[in-house]
Nucleic acid binder design. Structure first.
Length: 384
DNA sequence: CCTGTCTGCCCC
DNA sequence: ATTCTGC
DNA sequence: GCAGAATGGGCAGACAGG
């Protein structure tokens, strides 16, 4: 019964409505709740895999591999000439993407459907992908929308379908849903496309596809079970994402903020800096707040408590919840990529930074330098 | 009118 | 987004 | 295994204050 209620909620996303149906028609009523075109539904989520081989082993045998585009997830609803677009968190962004609306209206060959894809900013020069921040400028825009449609064109790559002409198709296996999608999508080059997909059971072939995705400057790939159904709002089932981690950086802690909630009483996040070899200064390049343990489960774990005690002697001063710390402690940090930053003195920031280890063997003078960040930044924009 | 700061069932 | 932890 | 709660960069918009 719980499952049926939950399922109904994932489709309707409205407790009141679920309650009403339960009152009037009971469990039977909830069982038959259908997608309403124009009303967003909870999206299926993916889990992480270390690499292609692991992903394929987990899913077993033949899999579908799709490019994971670096953009925004979008759910498109179509009913006749009417189009709605929703984000992953079910925010309504139809107004922000009039260009997408037009492509969807003309190129979804059906009366009614709900499809899903990834929207990303496309270069006007060579159709290559632009950084996520560029697309961000369009997502919650209220003013100058048309101007930005011109300045920042987007491409969508569709990868799933949940509803087609009166029928829910979420219980069909992925390979069948893909066939339906291929049947109804009229592709428009560099604008309205299907997600590039490879079906294979060969790890080598899959690895090659992954490398190609990276060469196209995309984030990585999704590895999917061909038999999997579409499951709302949960990180279960047959989708695994694989994306690379950049080379670890060793950076200096020069500040922190006191944590809240679970982390109250400890320093909960840490200001990182690289060394400017020209001046000897330490220049901020971001903050770090994940990857550190709350509890010690094994001897090599580093806890918030330990880190807080370790840094306390070097606190220079505090203002509000912010703390400045003398550069003493060096930490290893993983991240996805280096971004240009308007917010940090170094001019760079890390995307998705996470703590790996304390470098007890390193002094602040041995930390990675500004010129190394510059070098790595240029390297990634050239190779990807 | 500019600037800084804060918020967003925000996007990632 | 990533990661950790309680259930 | 899953859900919830900590935290990251960065964007547009709203608002307060000078």
């Amino acid at each position: 019964a719980t499952e049926i209620v939950e399922n109904a909620y994932n489709i309707l996303c409205d407790f009141g409505e679920v309650a009403e149906i339960a009152m009037e028609r009971g469990i039977e009523g909830l069982k038959h709740v259908k997608i309403k075109v124009g009303r967003p539904i909870k999206v299926m989520l993916a889990e992480k895999a270390k690499n292609i081989e692991d992903a394929m082993k987990t899913l077993g045998g033949r899999v579908a591999i799709e490019i994971k585009y670096d953009g925004m997830r979008a759910q498109i609803h179509k009913s006749g000439d009417k189009i709605w677009i929703y984000t992953r968190r079910l925010e309504h962004v139809t107004k922000q993407f009039p260009d997408l609306v037009e492509y969807a209206r003309k190129n979804l060959k059906c009366k009614e459907c709900v499809v899903e894809g990834e929207v990303w900013a496309v270069s006007k020069k060579d159709f290559s992908p632009l950084p996520f921040q560029v697309l961000s400028q369009r997502i919650h825009r209220k003013y100058k929308i048309e101007k930005m449609v011109e300045e920042i064109p987007v491409q969508i790559n569709l990868f799933d379908i949940m509803y087609l002409d009166g029928k829910m198709v979420i219980d069909l296996p992925l390979k069948e849903r893909r066939k339906l999608l291929e049947r109804i999508v009229n592709e428009v080059p560099h604008r309205f496309k299907l997600a590039t997909q490879l079906v294979t059971s060969d790890v080598k072939e899959a690895e090659k596809f992954y490398q190609q995705a990276l060469e196209l400057k995309q984030e990585g790939v999704m590895v999917k079970n061909l038999e999997s159904k579409y499951i709302f709002g949960r990180r279960v089932g047959g989708w695994l994402k694989v994306k690379p981690t950049a080379e670890t950086l060793d950076l200096v802690i020069v500040g922190a903020t006191w944590g809240t909630g679970k982390r109250a009483g400890w320093l909960g996040s840490f200001i990182l800096a690289c060394r400017d070899e020209a001046t000897g200064e330490f220049l901020e390049c971001g903050m770090l707040g994940t990857g550190i343990k709350e509890k010690k489960t094994s001897p090599e774990d580093v806890t918030f408590e330990e880190l807080t005690e370790m840094l306390k002697p070097y606190i220079e001063f505090q203002r509000g919840s912010e703390v400045r710390i003398r550069p003493k402690i060096v930490v290893s940090v993983d991240y996805q990529e280096i971004q240009r930053s308007p917010n940090y003195k170094s001019g760079f920031a890390l995307r998705f930074p996470r703590f790996i280890a304390i470098r007890f063997d390193k002094n602040p003078e041995d930390a990675d330098t500004l010129s190394r960040l510059e070098y790595l930044y240029k390297l990634q924009s050239r190779s990807k």
